[in-house]
Amino acid sequence: MFKRISVKVTVYVNILLLIVLLIGSWFIIGQQSQSLEDQLLERGKMEAVMGAKITGRLLEEAIDNGVFSVNDAFDTEYEEIPGFDPPKYHTKYDFYLDKALLAVEDEFVKDDSVVFAVAVDKNGYLPTHNTRYQQPITGNVERDKVGNRTKRIFNDPVGLAAAQNLKEGYLQVYNRDTGETMWDISAPIMVKGKHWGGFRIGFSLVKTNAQKAELTQSIALTMIAILLVSILSVIFTVASSLRPLEVLTKAASDLADGKVDNPIKVDSADEVGKLADALERLRISLKAAMDRIRKRRAQ
Rank of each mutant, 00 (worst) to 15 (best):
S6R: 06
S6F: 02
K8M: 11
K8I: 13
V13C: 13
I15R: 02
L16F: 13
L17I: 08
V20N: 13
L22R: 05
I23G: 07
G24S: 15
I28V: 15
I29Q: 07
Q31F: 14
Q32E: 04
S33F: 10
S33T: 01
G44N: 07
K45M: 08
E47G: 02
G51N: 07
A52N: 03
A52F: 10
K53I: 06
L59D: 09
E60C: 13
V67N: 05
S69R: 09
S69Q: 11
N71I: 10
F74S: 05
E80Q: 15
P86K: 12
P87M: 08
K88I: 14
T91Y: 11
Y93L: 14
D94P: 04
Y96V: 05
A100D: 06
L102K: 02
D106G: 09
K110F: 05
K110T: 04
K110P: 01
D112E: 14
D112C: 04
A119N: 09
G124D: 05
Y125F: 15
Y125A: 05
Y125W: 14
L126A: 15
T128E: 11
N130P: 02
T131N: 02
R132D: 08
Y133V: 05
Y133E: 03
Y133G: 03
P136L: 07
G139P: 04
E142L: 11
R143M: 12
G147R: 07
R149N: 08
R152A: 14
I153H: 04
F154D: 14
D156L: 07
D156M: 07
V158G: 03
G159D: 03
A161F: 10
A163D: 00
Q164Y: 09
N165E: 03
L166C: 02
K167N: 12
Y170C: 05
L171R: 15
N175V: 04
D177V: 10
E180W: 12
T181K: 12
I185L: 11
I189H: 07
V191R: 09
G193H: 13
K194L: 14
H195P: 07
H195M: 14
G202H: 06
F203H: 09
S204G: 10
L205E: 05
V206G: 10
K207Q: 14
T208N: 08
Q211F: 09
Q211G: 09
K212G: 03
Q217E: 08
M223R: 10
I226Y: 06
V229W: 07
I231K: 07
V234E: 06
V238F: 10
A239G: 11
A239V: 09
S240W: 15
S240R: 14
S241G: 12
L242V: 14
E246M: 09
L248H: 01
L248I: 00
T249P: 06
S253Y: 15
L255P: 00
A256D: 00
D257I: 10
K259T: 04
V260Y: 10
D261M: 08
N262P: 03
I264A: 00
V266F: 03
V266E: 00
A269E: 03
D270W: 01
K274L: 04
D277Q: 01
A278P: 00
L282A: 04
A288Y: 10
A288W: 05
A288C: 06
M290F: 07
D291Q: 05
R292L: 12
R296S: 13
R297I: 13
